[in-house]
């Protein structure tokens, strides 16, 4: 093929892909600024005739979106912080500390990755109920405080820490806790960032478990609230698009700022072989 034609074809196809990927998101943004009913006509308008924040105002003032935003932010932050602490300690130990049964334990954990999380959900609901954690932030946070995938990711990364470094610190008389905090954690910084973004995004976007365990509306996270709103306001397209913007924007921005770390983590997690 003629090289100029080939170049036009490759770039043209990429532009096509980008348009298909971004168009729904851009249109969502545009419709969210339209006046009520403006998007419910034929043909559908691409841009608002006048920009209005009325949909956002209605969501925050009358539909309690601020509350859901707060719930989502609180839950995702708590899950991220707590699971980081537990996964980092465990991942490092599986990589660098020798203890009896380490290999078998790790193999069991890896094997359990094939079990879909939903298998656990029904008994987990009963367990949460008996612990008084149904319909309460704890019901979402507590089961997510540690995860096999996070431990695996940390272990993969921590394996590159040289043993001599740890040995030298031990000879100097440093305790294991001190070694972990002073020497290991600074070395694990890139994977800490990666895992933090991964966890935050996953927790923010999670739907099925919060839907099950959060019964009371005032405790809903954004996705659960949005699903419930969209069932009530089937025809309020402008309002629903504004709700989608509020739900998507925080995670999309976080991704855009930190995408290098996110993509590295994705690749590190998928080359388990």
């Amino acid at each position: 093929m003629n090289p100029r034609l080939a170049k036009a074809l490759v770039n043209g196809l990429l532009i096509g892909f980008a348009v298909v990927s971004l168009a729904p998101l851009l249109w969502m943004l545009s419709v969210s600024f339209m006046a009520k009913g403006e998007a419910t006509v034929f043909p559908p308008p691409l841009l608002p005739s006048t920009l209005t924040l009325a949909n956002y105002r209605e969501l925050f003032e009358r539909n309690g979106l601020g509350r859901y935003l707060f719930n989502s932010a609180l839950i995702a932050s708590a899950v991220t912080l707590l699971s980081l602490a537990f996964n980092l300690a465990a991942g490092y130990a599986f990589a660098k500390l020798k203890f009896r049964g380490r290999e078998n334990l790790f193999k069991t954990l890896l094997g359990a990755l094939v079990i879909p999380g939903q298998v656990a959900m029904i008994p987990l609901f009963l367990l949460m109920k008996s612990l008084g954690l149904v319909n309460n932030y704890g019901g979402v946070i507590v089961p997510a405080m540690a995860g096999i995938f996070g431990i695996f990711l940390v272990r993969q990364y921590a394996r590159s820490i040289p043993d001599e470094l740890l040995e030298a610190a031990r000879i100097d008389g440093a305790g294991e806790g001190r070694i972990f905090v002073r020497i290991v954690l600074p070395l694990l910084k890139p994977i800490v960032v990666t895992l933090a973004i991964f966890t935050f995004l996953a927790s923010w976007n999670d739907f099925m478990w919060p839907l099950i365990v959060l019964a009371d509306q005032s405790n809903y996270t954004l996705p659960v609230a949005l699903a419930s709103l969209s069932r009530e306001h089937v025809m309020d397209n402008e309002l629903m698009m504004a709700g989608s913007v509020v739900t998507i924007a925080p995670v999309l921005l976080l991704f855009l700022v930190m995408q290098r770390y996110y993509i590295e983590g994705l690749l590190l997690g998928s080359v388990k072989g």
Binding site: L22, N205, L222, M241, L252
Partner: peptide
């Protein structure tokens, strides 16, 4: 980045968009 963007979005929110789309 553009082609990856839909991956990080919230399923519920983009499903609402698609329902309208």
């Amino acid at each position: 980045t553009a082609l990856f963007a839909p991956v990080v979005t919230t399923v519920v929110a983009v499903a609402v968009i698609w329902r309208y789309f």
